[in-house]
Design a protein around this nucleic acid. Structure first.
Lengths: 95, 95
DNA sequence: CCAGTTGGATGACC
DNA sequence: GGTCATCCAACTGG
């Protein structure tokens, strides 16, 4: 009962297959591996992206619920300040 | 003859399949499409990368043939200089 | 209606 | 894990 791997089919056109083979040969792995890698990388990117927007949505919900926020000016001012003084505290959320 | 598309199989484990399905649903496309997209993107990245190193190899061959080059110091000095004066010319290759 | 493409599942072989 | 061949359902355009 380790990792059950299922066989999925995918239609690729000739040019893509060629390229996959080239790269597979180039770094000495199988075309299959290349495809899996492609998918792994893609999924990882999507996950990170999703988490990013999830956090944004969360933050917004929190703001809607509590009214707590900082302004864009407060934030950019802090960004500028932190260059000079790395321990400048982030602005505090307020109503 | 339009674009001949051949059928390839790829073994993916359950977690990957789930994620593919999630993203497929999320942006309203088929899982199959997602996989193709993943591969397209990967291939594109690799191609660009390859071209980059090809240029590097070309440059090196040119150097080996002609002896023309600039030093690392010359280059970094220029990088620094160009910040202050954007039209600072790049150092010229020499023996 | 049939041909062609896409999307997808399997079974078998190495 | 890696690869191929087949067969299936759904949709699209002549």
């Amino acid at each position: 009962m380790s990792t059950a791997t299922a066989n999925k089919s995918i239609k690729l056109d000739a040019s893509e297959i060629e390229k996959i083979n080239q790269f597979a040969i180039a770094d000495n792995r199988t075309p299959h591996f290349i495809m899996k890698e492609a998918i792994r990388i893609y999924l990882k990117r999507r996950e990170v992206e999703k988490q990013f927007i999830d956090v944004a949505i969360e933050s917004r919900k929190h703001y809607k619920a509590t009214g707590l926020h900082i302004t864009h000016q407060e934030f950019t001012a802090w960004v500028a300040e932190v260059q000079k003084n790395p321990n400048t505290p982030m602005p505090v959320c307020h109503k």
